[in-house]
């Protein structure tokens, strides 16, 4: 509780938000705030200014193109994703969102906020990497697109640089996806997770085992466990899991996610 002093701005357009972020070195974008506000309560981070993105209609909405590509505004909430008819084109999205935290958090937390915080225990970073999402980042010089694989740079660190904003995420068509996780209790803090997509070969992205999602590929679900072992993971140890246990879970969960994907 009890944040440090902070300035607050609520821009009405993305361009204005970008200006505010560029002009104030200590400014941070405030999306759903379901992570950032908690970090600020702990005073582990204390931005000088919060640029509230909640007034930016440009960043909301889900569109489904004729080729099956989904374009999701960064400020789309988990609940919106779960309920969207368009988002059903890639069913795994809504399914995973339904297991994030709880109703209240899902009502406010956003897909953009989730990936931009890149907490290694979040579900969406590995999912985005596995299904080949592409992130559009806006800055003073216009927009650029970054594949999810290159988007996540480190713990709490992404390709979104100072003065920039993630504006939307595009996701290619596909249905054969899977996801598996071990959490503290049902839908609690994540210990290890794995997202898989099958498109001929199997593509896995593992979460909680490194600072960024780790990609592993295999010819079939049956080869996933060996592929994970061959990746020589060195996950961190913490109070919930040792490095050894996480390494083990990674192989098990990757296989389960791959099997789920293959079975669709």
């Amino acid at each position: 509780m009890l944040l440090r002093e902070v300035e607050y701005a609520k821009p009405g357009a993305v361009a204005e938000a970008l200006q505010l972020l560029a002009a104030n070195e200590g400014a941070r974008a405030l999306a759903g705030g379901q992570t950032l506000v908690n970090v600020m309560k702990a005073r582990a981070a204390s931005p000088d200014m919060l640029v509230d993105l909640n007034g930016l209609e440009e960043l909301r909405g889900i569109e489904l193109a004729g080729d099956g590509t989904l374009t999701i505004g960064a400020m789309t909430t988990y609940t919106e994703l779960m309920r969207s008819a368009e988002a059903k084109a890639r069913p795994i999205l809504g399914e995973v969102c339904a297991t994030i935290a709880d109703v209240q958090v899902r009502n406010r937390g956003t897909i953009g906020g989730n990936v931009c915080s890149n907490d290694p225990t979040n579900h969406l970073p590995p999912l985005m990497v596995a299904i080949g999402a592409r992130m559009t980042i806006a800055g003073a010089d216009g927009e650029r697109e970054v594949p999810a694989e290159d988007f996540f740079l480190g713990v709490y660190l992404t390709a979104v640089g100072p003065g920039e904003l993630l504006t939307r995420i595009s996701i290619p068509a596909g249905k054969k996806d899977g996801f598996a996780a071990v959490t503290l209790g049902a839908e609690g803090t994540c210990i290890c997770n794995a997202a898989a997509t099958v498109n001929g070969a199997v593509r896995i992205a593992l979460g909680c085992v490194d600072a960024v999602p780790v990609v592993v590929t295999a010819d079939s679900a049956g080869g996933v466990a060996d592929a994970v072992r061959a990746a020589n993971l060195t996950p961190p140890s913490d109070v919930h899991a040792s490095s050894e246990y996480r390494t083990h879970l990674a192989a098990v969960l990757a296989t389960r996610a791959a099997e789920e994907a293959a079975a669709r």
């Binding site: 506000v37 919060l50 709880d102 209240q104 958090v105 009502n107 406010r108």
Partner: peptide, 26 residues
């Protein structure tokens, strides 16, 4: 103080939220 407990839950414009993860100005 981490947004977990929900004792502060309120409904804002019809949407259930935890009022500890929202600024009053918002």
């Amino acid at each position: 103080d981490t947004g977990n407990c929900g004792a502060c839950s309120v409904i804002v414009d019809g949407v259930l939220l935890k009022s500890c993860m929202l600024l009053a100005v918002q």
